[in-house]
Computed example of a mutant assay.
Amino acid sequence: MLKIGFCDDDLNVLKELQVLVDRYRVEKNREIEYAAFQSSLDLLAELEKGVRFDILFLDVLMPGQNGMDAAREIRDIDTAVKIIFLTSSPEYAVESYTVGAYFYQLKPIWQESFYRLMDSVIAECKKAEQRSLIMRCREGISRIELEKLMYCEVMGRTLQFYMEDGRVLESMGKLDDLKEQLSVYANFLRPHRSYLVNMDYIRTLSSKSIRMQNQKEIPIPHGKYSDIKNRYLEYVFDREQVVL
């Protein structure tokens, strides 16, 4: 179920957006829920309660807190949501991309252009969803791109996700549950009860440990080396990588 949020101080614009979404979901046969807000403060209050949206339509010029400032606060809570700015002026178009906006839509909004935009942003949401996890981390709601996840370590009830860019994201959970979630992806291997590794980031493999690209040494339990080596080599050969 796709969840969309609309935020605009103009009630007529909110009603127009709701009509467009209602038409779109009927004609395209899509399951979509939406919620409307007349102020960014109301929207932020809902996000802070844990409410999550896939797409946010956010007016730029609103009394009190404008859309750009609201977007910066939204990014502190949710790095994954697709933000689409609404405005009657192109003045803030460049600035909109500093907060990771997906699109900058000029008003008035015509049905044809709205449908094209919805088709595009929904396709992007689906593509991101196929190779990512949505996690509630200390930083807020984050989308963890699996191709950029090097490995995960569990410490007590905390999962630590080590990313390619050096970030470490934390979330409450069990490694058993995460392994089950990622079982459909051939590149994830659990060599140790405390680690789940992305084999694309293995630098070297020895009888005692796995060395990841960030130089992290992950221990291999006694008697497990042969199974781990065979699994890794099978994955490498399946991907037609060269092993010397």
Results as ranks from 00 to 15, higher is better:
E46R: 10
A71I: 06
F57T: 06
E73P: 01
E112D: 13
I74R: 02
E31P: 02
F103Q: 07
I32N: 04
I84P: 01
I83W: 00
E73L: 14
D54F: 09
W110M: 09
Q105T: 06
D69V: 12
M118H: 06
A45E: 14
L41F: 10
E46H: 03
K15S: 15
F6K: 02
N12D: 02
Q65W: 00
A45I: 08
L86V: 08
M68F: 06
Y97A: 10
P108D: 07
G64K: 04
A45D: 14
D69K: 08
K15I: 05
V60G: 12
P90F: 07
D119F: 10
V19N: 14
A36K: 06
T87W: 03
D22A: 15
D69Q: 07
D76L: 09
R25S: 09
A71Y: 06
P90A: 10
V13N: 09
R30A: 08
F57D: 04
Q18E: 15
Y92Q: 03
D10A: 12
L117E: 03
V60Y: 09
T87A: 14
V81S: 05
Y24C: 05
G64Q: 07
M118W: 05
Y24E: 13
R23E: 12
K15V: 12
F53W: 13
D69H: 04
L86H: 01
L44K: 01
V19R: 14
N66Q: 12
R52C: 15
N29G: 04
Y102F: 03
A36Q: 07
G100Y: 01
G50Y: 01
E27D: 12
I83G: 08
W110Y: 05
D59S: 09
E46P: 00
F57N: 10
E31Q: 14
Y115R: 12
F57W: 00
I109T: 09
Q105S: 10
L43I: 01
P108W: 00
F37M: 14
Y102G: 09
S96G: 07
R116S: 15
E91S: 07
R52D: 13
S88A: 12
L44W: 00
E91K: 13
E112V: 15
Y92N: 11
Y34E: 03
E46T: 06
A123S: 13
T87P: 05
L43P: 04
A80I: 05
E95R: 07
R72M: 14
L58W: 01
E31M: 01
K28R: 15
D42P: 00
L56E: 02
D9W: 00
D76E: 11
D59L: 15
E27I: 10
V94D: 00
Q38P: 04
F37C: 12
W110E: 08
Y102R: 04
A70Q: 00
L117H: 04
L58C: 10
F37W: 07
L17H: 08
F53K: 09
G64C: 11
Y24S: 12
V26C: 01
F37G: 14
I83P: 02
E112A: 15
K49Q: 10
S89W: 00
E46L: 01
M62G: 13
K49D: 07
E73F: 04
R30E: 13
V13Q: 15
N66V: 11
I74Q: 01
L58F: 03
K82D: 15
E73T: 14
R25E: 14
I109R: 04
Q65F: 06
V19D: 12
A35K: 08
E95M: 07
